[in-house]
Amino acid sequence: MIVQALTFYLFAGITVAAGVMVVSARNPVHSVLFLILAFLNSAGLFVLMGAEFLAMVLVVVYVGAVAVLFLFVVMMLDINFVELRQGFLQYLPIGGLIGLILLVELVLVIGAWVVAPDAAATIAEPMPAPERMTNTHALGLILYTRYVYLFQIAGLILLVAMVGAIVLTLRGREGVRKQRIAAQVRGRREERVELKKVPTRGGI
């Protein structure tokens, strides 16, 4: 038990520290690298909770794909973030005020926290016992049956995002020669090769 607690504090501590560094690092690339560190440690926390599928998917999707693109963009952009931060102090009072209001609201909310008496009854699907099925299996079962509607809409949203990205950025450039592999493969010998009988000492 103590090892588990220690591991938890290790992961949680690194996650929080990395999160702070994401915001405070001067170099944007370092920020992204700290973000990745935070993701990895969150995956560790998921593993501790027994949600191994979520942990792995977090690594595959966020670290393996999303953050790579982030890193790409940040590395290529070459923005001087220090300059961008110049106005930061100017907005600190109002930002701080909003933060404070939200904090007060949250405290109020937590102060008034009561679990609704019939909340347990309304939980849609009780969790199956862990020894009966792995959480990958359980997630799949619920995602493709009960929540198939939401799953499909999410798919459509991603499709729209893809169409939108292409619409807004793809430009057909003039004067670019493209390789047409089908045409190359379709080409026949007669079109490409011409056999000439070269007379001795004559040249072509």
Partner: peptide
Amino acid sequence: IALYLGIELQSLSLYV
């Protein structure tokens, strides 16, 4: 959740 996803599908198309 259905409400949110519907809004997102609509909004994302509108942004583009």
